[in-house]
Design a protein around this nucleic acid. Structure first.
Length: 394
RNA sequence: GGUGGGGUGGCCGAGUGGCUAAUGGCAGCAGACUGUAAAUCUGCCGGGCUACGCCCUACGAAGGUUCGAAUCCUUCCCCCACCA
């Protein structure tokens, strides 16, 4: 159920296959983010056809709405959303960072003031595990404490040590829940025609913290591995305000010690260039909201850099966003039309660019994998980065 | 013809003597966005300049009152409503 096979590597870059209860994930891979149980604006069919093998959901946001009780009653997140492939749920740890103004951290857990109705919600390592269990994701993430990229050594150490202590509690709760599941009680298949099946086991991945400080990162990794074994390892707390060279340095520092036979997931990253740079440093899995958020805001990635579709320059631009792209948007629509959709504020524009961006990142995973398998990743990645950076605006 | 209301920067629309080159919104132009409080947010938005300040031109038109007017007065032009 949780196998990872490494097929090839070139330098630090790796190509593998991850087997999960709901299917396989060929790596390196980008995982589109569906915080609220939907990859914003996109039909699951479109997400699938774009090549997504696994998507994310979010513990905190799904806990607020509709609540894990509703999702549990609806047969789990897969069945509720009709997404049939693997899913990973984030623990709510990132909201400790992103909702900094609305929460209070204690050793037991985090108190959030709901941005929806002002009610106070407490998330602890245990409740995060319980919620993710009810959601029924293939991969549950440990509840961690993310600090800003500029955080001092002291603050980063505090977050890192707390993440380790919380990891113990996550593991204990996760193990206890797994015992309950091992009876293999029959439930409906998550998608029509709802054949009876066995509740798939969920696996738990730990998260490395330590901010921008290499020594803390290594301590975090060592402390995490001591608590293993794990079926995968995540690196969190990057792309949260630190300079890119720092992220690269941290990845390089961790690469040697990370288990070679387990997938590595760089959380919340990234932009196209971050995927290529990350793969080059041994990362197998990525996720990022930028594809859909920037898409909704009219910003598209292309093989020749970024395109802001709202710009007047595209008023009569007959070209697709990216002539080399094989997405459904580029196959059919001109920049002029996409710009028009943004100008008039039609939802189709947001959808089409989101779809393009999602496909763009998924394709980077596919191309990188093919290059690694062909032992040409080094050449491919250097050429890719050169072209991407050649023109800032296509 | 009469009575009443009104004409403000591309559009809508505040402002009724100085702090007004003129609140807002829209449109326009540009930027940001990395485990989603985001179809959001930020900046610019009369013209010119040897610009953190100066000079033009501006609130229907012309004239007037005043140290000072988009704001008050006079005349004219135009729009709307109702009555003839």
């Amino acid at each position: 159920m949780f196998e990872f096979t490494l097929h090839a590597s070139e330098g630090a870059a790796r190509a593998g296959t991850l087997r999960l209860p709901h299917g396989e994930v060929l790596t390196p891979a980008f995982m589109p983010v569906g915080t609220y149980g939907t990859v914003r604006g996109l039909h699951p069919e479109e997400v699938e056809q774009a090549g997504a093998q696994i998507i994310l959901g979010n513990t905190y946001h799904l806990h607020l709405r509709p609540g894990e009780a509703v999702i549990g009653a609806m047969g789990g997140l897969h069945r509720f959303t009709s997404w049939r492939r693997p899913m990973l749920t984030d623990s709510g740890g990132f909201q400790v960072f992103s909702l900094a103004g609305l929460r209070k951290i204690g050793e037991d857990g985090v108190e959030f003031t709901s941005h929806i109705d002002g009610s106070v919600r407490t998330l602890t390592p245990e409740s995060s595990m319980d919620i993710q269990h009810a959601l029924g994701s293939d991969i549950a993430m440990a509840f961690d404490h993310v600090v800003p990229g500029q955080a001092s050594w002291e603050l980063a150490e505090e977050g890192m040590e707390r993440t380790l202590r919380w990891l113990d509690r996550c593991k204990a709760r996760h193990d206890a829940l797994a015992v309950g599941r091992d009876g293999g009680k029959a439930v409906d298949d998550p998608v029509p025609p709802f054949r009876p099946t066995t509740i798939p086991r969920q696996t738990l991945w730990p998260i490395i913290q330590g901010g921008s400080h290499d020594d803390l990162r290594m301590r975090s990794l060592e402390g995490t591995l001591e608590r293993g074994p794990w079926t995968g390892t995540a690196i969190g707390g990057l792309s949260v305000g630190e300079p890119k060279p720092v992220m690269h340095r941290v990845l390089e520092a961790l690469a040697e010690t990370l288990p070679r036979d387990r997938p590595r997931y760089l959380m919340g990253v990234g932009f196209p260039e971050d995927l290529v740079e990350g793969i080059a440093r041994g990362v197998d899995l990525f996720d990022c909201v930028a594809a859909t958020r920037n898409g909704r805001h009219g910003s598209a990635w292309t093989s020749a850099g970024r395109v802001n579709i709202r710009k007047a320059a595209h008023r009569t631009d007959e070209r697709p966003l990216d002539a080399e792209c094989d997405c459904a948007t580029c196959a059919r629509f001109s920049r002029a039309y996409l710009r028009h959709l943004f100008v008039v504020g039609d939802i189709l524009g947001l959808r089409l660019i989101s779809l393009h961006n999602v496909r763009f990142l998924l394709r980077i995973g596919e191309l990188a994998r093919a290059a690694i398998l062909a032992r040409s990743f080094d050449r491919w990645s250097r050429e890719w980065l050169r072209r991407y950076h050649a023109k800032e605006e296509a």
